[in-house]
Design a protein around this nucleic acid. Structure first.
Length: 593
RNA sequence: GACCCCAUCGUCUAGUCAGGUCCAGGACAUCAGGUUUUCAUCCUGAAAACAGGGGUUCGAAUCCCCUUGGGGUCGCCA
């Protein structure tokens, strides 16, 4: 048995697509069959090589390996190629000719504008638009004349009769469709490319695909495919239509979700700004977008790893229309994300990869979102999927994507790692997606740090238990790599309480601890721990919190950091003393005002 | 709007096909306690659902019908 995933390479791989691919793969593997990747690049305008590569990268990252298809890092190959629809044009035309000859299809000369006008009229009259078969009534001489003139035209499939079409679907049972609900659909476009319907039917037949597993949005296409298969004398594969993945608000999961969040943040940010400031800000974003991605640094560097359809080069006007909600262009949303330092909801596989989710966790969660193994089992790996997956437990209803649950799964997986594993994965992640972080860690106060040394081990270890994603450390460790001057002390209740309350106050403790730390013979975690514990015992009723919190604030500016002993050890003595001093002088500043 | 699909805690689901063992089980989220040098973890506990209405049946979350709600499709996109 053979399954296939047949995406169009027109954008990043969406989690919905990833799940379809996953379940196709799992089904094939569970039944000892082959899984095929076929690129359905029949839309010349929207397809791109970059998108295709990105797609394969994402599938590969997820561990969904195709036995046949385009070759990529050990995947692909096979005897049924080519695996790009765009390279199979002659094949499609062969079948088009047959259909034409047998009168099962016909040429139609209406242009897109003409059809759109007819649709608009139908809409205005509250009618359902169906193609009126005008071209079918053309006589042979006219058709010949049009062809001689070189008029652009499409080929339409002629619906054979009025018999209801019954499609057997493995998850939904029998689905019956009245042909009156359909019309003579286009199978060959004016540019000579087939439509999806024709390509998919021919490719599935020629590639011996036995099981078609795809999203529910294709359910309504199935009768068309079945009709085509019958007309061409092809066998009918088994069909299974998966339910959809929805946003938390119930809408179909899409780029809209990102746009919504980015738009809200941008509006919030721009709210208090003057017209001039707004213009300047937008101009800056526009220029940022124009920069070649390879030159971006720092937080902008994330762009490099995020595949986007094209280099857009937005104008200020396009930006405006995004803000007004007229477009949901993800590239603009990401520009805002990077500029404002906000987090957009992940919807594409690459988003999750960049956010530091583990592929095996995403796979687990995605599988669970369309299938259930029963027996209250919900944590499982690839092998389990392959041994247990079957179509009979595929879920019929749509599911909302719950990022909180995914995060919880990711946390569990990270906590289950050995310290070594976590360190290695973290480092690989930083190097790939946060090179500036690694760079700074190895410079500045950490001049001793290169690749594996204790300092980094300590940082990883100190963050392991508090990480939900591989990215968490980067986010929460910024204070490590900041220059001392850049540390700003938060003006929050917690900070004030820890620093000012009590007698002695946090400031007093800091002042007392500073010389003690300066005199420490060895700057190690154990030595620091020993000294601070002793101090707390003698001067703070044994309450470590009394000294840990002021220290934490002094070195990080906030009340949150890894465990204090480790934090100080990683930071190094000079940095710690320097920052304590800064914090203390800040006291003088605030008390004088 | 037309056609089609779907319907158990806030969310994902088990249970539905073979009606009783289900005053409905698990997970995430939430809330309350506890552990902890902060955050995050971790531990304990609580609250939380068979969409509504009709049937069928001794008996229905499970079968049938209607209503309601949600989703999909209606492209020379896939």
């Amino acid at each position: 048995m053979r399954t296939r995933f047949a995406p169009s390479p027109s954008g990043p791989l969406h989690v919905g697509g990833a799940r379809t691919a996953l379940l196709c793969w799992a089904y094939a593997k569970a039944h000892g069959g082959s899984f095929i990747l076929r690129i359905e690049d029949t839309d010349q305008k929207r397809s791109s090589d970059a998108a295709c590569r990105a797609l394969m990268q994402d599938l590969h990252w997820l561990g969904i390996e195709w036995d046949e298809g385009p070759e990529y890092d050990g995947c692909g190959g096979g005897e049924h190629g080519p695996y790009f629809a765009s390279q199979r044009l002659d094949l499609y035309h062969r079948y088009i000719d047959i259909l034409l000859e047998q009168g099962k299809a016909y040429r139609a000369f209406e242009g897109p504008e003409q059809l759109e006008a007819a649709r608009a009229t139908a809409r205005a009259e509250k009618r359902v638009y169906r193609y009126d078969r005008a071209a079918l009534k053309l006589d042979g001489a006219t058709i010949q004349r049009y062809l001689d003139e070189g008029r652009p035209h499409v080929v339409r499939f002629k619906l054979p009769n009025d018999e209801p079409i019954v499609v057997r679907d493995e998850v939904r049972g029998e689905v019956t469709v009245d042909p009156k609900e359909m019309d003579d659909f286009v199978i060959l476009k004016a540019d000579g490319y087939p439509t999806y319907h024709l390509a998919v039917v021919i490719d599935d037949e020629l590639m011996d695909v036995t099981h078609v597993i795809r999203g529910q949005e294709h359910l309504y296409n199935t009768p068309k495919h079945v009709l085509l298969q019958d007309a061409l004398g092809f066998r009918r594969p088994v069909f299974a239509h998966l339910s959809l993945i929805l946003n938390p608000d119930g809408s179909k999961m899409s780029k809209r979700e990102k746009a919504k969040v980015a738009r809200r943040a941008a509006k919030e940010y721009l709210k208090a700004k003057s017209v001039e400031e707004r213009k300047a800000w937008i101009a800056e974003l526009v220029s940022l977008d124009k920069k070649p991605k390879s030159l971006l640094t720092g937080i902008e560097a994330k762009h490099k790893h995020r595949f986007q359809d094209v280099d857009h080069n937005f104008s200020a006007r396009e930006f405006q229309s995004f803000l007004e909600g007229d477009t949901d262009e993800p590239a603009i949303a990401h520009l805002i994300e990077d500029k404002l330092g906000i987090d957009l909801p992940e919807v594409d596989v690459q988003d999750f990869r960049l956010s530091g989710y583990l592929p095996e966790v995403l796979i687990n969660y995605l599988a669970l979102l369309g299938w259930s193994p029963g027996h209250d089992i919900e944590k499982f790996d690839r092998d389990f999927l392959v041994t247990h997956f079957d179509l009979d437990r595929v879920i019929k209803s749509n599911a909302k994507f719950d990022r909180a649950k995914l995060l919880a799964f990711n946390l569990d997986a990270i906590q289950a790692m050995s310290p070594n594993q976590f360190r290695e994965l973290s480092y690989a992640h930083y190097r790939e997606y946060h090179p500036e972080f690694v760079e700074k860690l190895s410079a500045d106060q950490f001049d001793m740090l290169a690749l594996s040394p204790e300092q980094f081990d300590m940082l990883a270890a100190a963050n392991h238990s508090r990480s939900k994603t591989l990215d968490d450390t980067v986010k929460s460790s910024q204070f490590f790599i900041m220059s001392h001057d850049a540390i700003e002390y938060e003006e929050t209740k917690g900070v004030r309480k820890a620093l000012c309350n009590g007698d002695p106050s946090g400031y007093d403790h800091l002042a007392a601890i500073k010389p003690m730390l300066a005199d420490l013979t060895a700057w190690t975690k154990d030595a620091i721990e020993h000294a601070l514990n002793n101090y707390a015992q003698e001067h703070a009723d044994g309450k470590l919190g009394k000294v840990a919190q002021p220290l934490r604030i002094a070195v990080s500016g906030t009340t949150v950091s890894p465990a204090i002993f480790e934090t100080l050890a990683i930071l190094g003595r000079d940095a710690v003393l320097n920052r304590i001093e800064r914090c203390l002088s800040n006291r003088k500043l605030s008390s004088s005002t």
